[in-house]
Amino acid sequence: MITQVPQPVLEVHDLTVSYDQQPVLWNVDLSLPAGQLIGILGPNGAGKSTLIKSIMGLIPPTSGYIKIFNKPLQEVRTRISYVPQRESVDWNFPASVLDVVVMGTYGKLGLFRRPGKKEIQIAEDALEQVGMTAFTKRQISELSGGQQQRVFIARALAQQADLYLMDEPFAGVDMATETAIFQLEWVIMLNLHLVASGPKDQVMTEELFRKTYGGKLNLHTQVTDLIRKQDFNPLKS
């Protein structure tokens, strides 16, 4: 079912990922082209976050391998940006919005080196892109859910990467941020069981969803309905 692309940005080969010997993802094969926005759909608990985490090397795969820009992850870490689910951290952490966004620059800085003027400038630019300039000094616990999500996206922008992996980046964000995301030529992975890649109308068909999700189809029929609507753009490619 996989559309093989020439010179893929991301290749996943026969990936199986398990928690405590219980496979959550199995035999996932995918290969994604550059310069596209790609979504992976799946119901709650389908394994979307697990797939992203194993691509980022946070969960070791049981079998299979992953190549990014045709190289193993370790060699290209600084070229990949990661947005975890917002719920994965404690937002009562004593840090300002700027403190968190500057963290995006730490990967390229390396051990012991401290962020300086250049890194702060990068972070401020990223905050401007998501329309959060007014909140630079605000403590992160004093933000709304959508604003926290924008802080995470700004932190990913500050990584200045070539490939962006985002786990549910649209949860609660406003139109401006959405636009900021779409202006960039990213690959966005939202969900699991990617069966194909390519133009939205060829990929997001009911037949493909039926093949992928089998018994869990109900939810996805609604998703396809959603996609047919003009105003639903996250999956535009």
């Binding site: 600084t78 952490f93 730490y106 932190r155």
Partner: peptide
Amino acid sequence: SITSFDEQFSSAIGI
């Protein structure tokens, strides 16, 4: 500070 705030992100960026 980064590993205290977001351990997974730290690992993801190679810290």
